[in-house]
Write a protein that binds this DNA or RNA. Structure first.
Lengths: 231, 231
DNA sequence: GCGAATCTGAACCGATCAGTTCAGATATTA
DNA sequence: TAATATCTGAACTGATCGGTTCAGATTCGC
């Protein structure tokens, strides 16, 4: 269920390292009350939400899955939306933390880009990545704060990492980029070419390893063609 | 009861034919019956579905909006899903047809690419494009055939057009592309850089004209850097 | 062991919603 | 105008679901 999150590993993760990264439930709202079985509930909720989506997931199902009474759930969360928000937040933290491993030392540009692209594609393929994306996009408009929450702890983080890394390479004269934000967005988008639509629109049951390679190398080749320095 | 005599025989406009100025309701299923107020219903349904999404749209609302009784709706469509599928199909046809004006004659590659990118971005920004994407992605997994249907009449068409045009330019020696499918996907993805996430995750209320230009030119520059021939 | 906090489970409320039914009104056609 | 096809509207079914309530069971801290 929990796949390694996709992000460019940065040696010293200055920005957006979650403070006191120990406690996963640190970001709990004031409105959320904890109790003995809080984690059970969160686990059950995650499973059911990811399986059924937000709207179709029933609180009774969640209670059953969590092995907890419905009353307990409503003792923790004031409503279903906040429960989902909590699950999303918590799961994003977990994903991010799981990918804290870093690449050390000086890596050639092409290698770094390839690794980054691979991770992003892996994330797109992951069960969590797909289903969460579906839910956030589908419900986002009617669900205040959801889109933002997801972005900040998911794609937003990746974006920042990419910008940071690209910046380093630019300073070393190994890339030539004027608009770092755009370049990062382009990189992330390119990774989706050839795989995202297949998955999102149910065009293919599985994505083969070849598909992944094609996408990754396509991304790197294109990115370097545009921003690489002829060495 | 549904009188079999009134069953509408579908004119054999099968897949992917876009009769110039033809009947918009041509692609009606066998299971769908027409009547005097068919178009009213389709219009009302489109409005409500796009406003509320599939799940949250109520059939009573649609009936009210269409100025038609609920019984009439269920005389046309066997269920809500087929009604939505019909709306989606019909609307995609309309959109596609509206953009049928093709790039005529010999246009420099850069110009052609720019125009294409502009159109794609415009579509992404459109109300229909956004909302439809949300619905299809959100409901796709639980809605047999929806993803495919949408893809075939939307992104899939664009993809085909791109492949076709790129192929022409390659033959003329004005582009150098080995994997046309990948290149088309990359092009379409690049157009989304900088705009799609902002919209999807509610990061920005409006997309400025600058944003559009930035995305379009970013796309064209990158694409040509990779696949252009040094002239 | 005792009191306090927490959890249970099942019933219950109010609301929504897809889909049906049908007698009667309305439009179409010829 | 008469026969036919279409539409109406309102009531109804059956089901789901979010959220509440509470008396009693369970667990925890001390």
């Amino acid at each position: 269920m929990i796949e390694p999150a996709a992000q460019l590993a940065v040696p010293d993760c200055d920005v957006l390292c979650f403070p006191d990264g120990g406690d996963m439930n640190a970001a709990v709202d004031q409105t959320v009350r904890r109790g003995r079985k809080f984690d059970q509930v969160l686990d059950g909720a995650r499973k059911i939400f990811l399986r059924d989506g937000f709207e179709r997931a029933s609180v009774d199902d969640i209670a059953r899955e969590a092995g907890v009474s419905k009353a307990t759930i409503y003792a923790y969360f004031p409503d279903k939306q906040l429960m989902f928000l909590e699950v999303a937040r918590c799961e994003c933290h977990r994903q991010t933390e799981a990918a804290e491993a870093s690449i050390e030392g000086d890596v050639p540009v092409r290698t770094a880009l390839t690794v980054a692209a691979e991770r992003i594609v892996q994330f797109l393929l992951s069960d969590f990545g797909q289903r969460m994306f579906r839910i956030v996009v589908g419900e986002g408009e009617r669900f205040p704060g959801l889109g933002r929450e997801f972005y900040d702890y998911g794609p937003g983080l990746i974006h920042e990492r990419l910008v940071h890394h690209f910046g380093c390479y630019v300073r070393e004269g190994k890339l030539r980029i004027d608009d770092l934000d755009l370049a990062a967005d382009q990189f992330a988008q390119l990774c989706k070419a050839g795989v995202q639509e297949k998955l999102l629109f149910g065009m293919a049951e599985t994505i083969t390893q070849e598909d992944v390679c094609r996408s990754v190398h396509g991304t790197v080749d294109m990115f370097l063609a545009r921003y690489g320095v002829s060495d």
